[in-house]
Design a binder for these strands. Structure first.
Lengths: 207, 207
DNA sequence: TTATCTTTGTTTTATTAATAACAACATAAA
DNA sequence: TTTATGTTGTTATTAATAAAACAAAGATAA
C-alpha cells in the first residue's frame, strides 16, 4: 500500500474510533452516509477513503463494522506495536497520559519525562515519570519510537534535539513554537493558541 | 476585508506569536525568509499571506515587526475583545487556562465550568470554576462568545447543545467525538488521538 | 418479469492551497 | 553612471483535496 493522503489517514483514525463504539453497541453494518453524518462530511468522501484502503462493502447492508475496523487497523497500526513517550508531565502531559491509557493495543504510552523532582518516580495513568536526563537511555531500553512534546515553549527546542539524538521516528509537538528536526523524522505540530485564535476570527463576524 | 483562507488565518496567528518574540528581543525588521524558516514554510507563502492582508514591506529591510503585528491584530482581533469559557476543568482544561492566561489582550478566558463539587469555586490561573448548571447565566452575564469543550467524551454532546442555547458564537471541541451545532456557529474540532495515530502511521515506515 | 429504489465504487470536475516564476525596485558596488 | 544583488508583490502554474456525477448491482415491490 503506497502512502495514503494525509487527510485520509486522519479520517480513518476518526472512523475507527466511532466504528468501535458502533461495534460495542452491537451494530454489525453501517452505511457510508451514517459514517458521514457522524463526522460532518459527505458520504462520497467516506466511500472514497474506504476505496483507497481497498475495502468493499455490500450493496444493501453497507460496510461490515468489524471487518472495516480490522482493515483500518492493518493500515494504520504497526503489527508489532509502537511505544510512545510523553515529555513534560504538567497538566497537558497528564491529560495526554489519561487520554491514551488503554486506548489502542498497538500504541502504548510507556514512559513520561519531567524535570520537576517531585514528579519523578510518580505514576500517573499507569505511566511512570522519569528524569529528562534519562531520556536517551529509556527511549532505547523501552524501544520508544514516538514522542509527544508537552513541555513549556522555552524547553521544546532542546527536547526535540535530544529526541532526534535518541533515535525517535515521529514527534508530535504541542508547544507553540515550531521545532527543527531532520527530514527522516516525521513531525506534526499542533498549536492550541492558533486553534483558538482561528475560532475567534471566524466567530467574530457571526451575527 | 473579505474572509481570508483558513490556512492563512492559522499562519497569521503563528506569525504574530513569533513576531512578538522578535519584537521583545528588539528586532525591528524581518525578512520573509526569516519568518519562513521559523515556520518551516517557503518565503513565498509568507509574502503571499502578508499580501492578502494588504501590508507592504520595504525592499531592503523587509517588514517592520511592530507594524506587522499591529496589522495582524487588526485582522484577527475584535476591537472590543472576545471572552472565552472553558468547559471542563480537568487536566486538559487547566492546561488550557494556564496556556491562555494573559496571552492576548483581546482574547480572555473569563470563566471555567465543571461538575465536580470540589472544583467549583476554586480559581486556577486567575479563572474561577463555576458549576455547569450556571452555564447559560454566566455566559450571558460575562458576555462570553467563545467556548472550549474539554470534558469527557460522553458529556460533550450535551455541553455543545447548552452552549448553542446560551448563544455562543464559536466552539473549539477537544473531545474525540464530533459534536453537532447549527450552521451559524463556527465549530473547530481537534482530536489528539487522531494526531498521534497520524504520527504513528507516518513514522511507521521510517527506517 | 419488470420497474424502482438505494447504495456502492470510480471517474470527472471543482475548489482550495502551495509553489514557481518573474517584474519592479532599491541599494551597493564597480 | 552602470551593473549586480537581493528583496518584495503579484500573477501563473501545479498539486492536493473535496465534491459531483454516474454506472453497476442487488433488493424490493408492482
Amino acid at each position: 500500500m503506497s502512502t495514503l493522503p494525509d487527510k485520509t489517514v486522519e479520517r480513518l483514525s476518526q472512523y475507527r474510533r466511532n466504528l468501535l463504539i458502533c461495534d460495542a453497541k452491537g451494530k454489525e453494518h453501517i452505511f457510508s452516509h451514517e459514517i458521514a453524518n457522524i463526522h460532518h462530511i459527505t458520504p462520497v468522501q467516506v466511500r472514497r477513503d474506504i476505496m483507497l484502503i481497498g475495502y468493499t462493502g455490500t450493496l444493501r447492508k453497507g460496510y461490515n463494522v468489524k471487518e472495516l475496523v480490522a482493515l483500518i487497523g492493518e493500515i494504520l497500526d504497526k503489527p508489532e506495536g509502537q511505544n510512545v513517550a510523553i515529555i513534560g508531565a504538567g497538566n497537558l502531559g497528564r491529560a495526554l497520559m489519561k487520554y491514551f491509557k488503554n486506548r489502542r493495543e498497538k500504541l502504548s504510552v510507556v514512559a513520561a519525562f519531567d524535570n520537576n523532582p517531585e514528579k519523578i518516580g510518580t505514576i500517573y495513568a499507569n505511566v511512570e515519570v522519569f528524569p529528562i536526563s534519562q531520556l536517551k537511555q529509556i527511549i532505547s531500553d523501552k524501544k520508544i519510537s514516538i514522542a509527544i512534546i508537552s513541555v513549556p515553549v522555552d524547553n521544546a527546542a532542546a527536547i526535540a534535539d535530544s529526541l532526534v539524538e535518541a533515535g525517535i521516528k515521529g514527534i508530535l509537538n504541542f508547544s507553540p513554537r515550531p521545532v527543527n528536526v531532520p527530514e527522516h523524522i516525521y513531525l506534526e505540530e499542533y498549536d492550541m493558541i492558533t486553534s483558538l485564535e482561528k475560532v475567534a476570527y471566524f466567530a467574530k463576524n457571526k451575527n
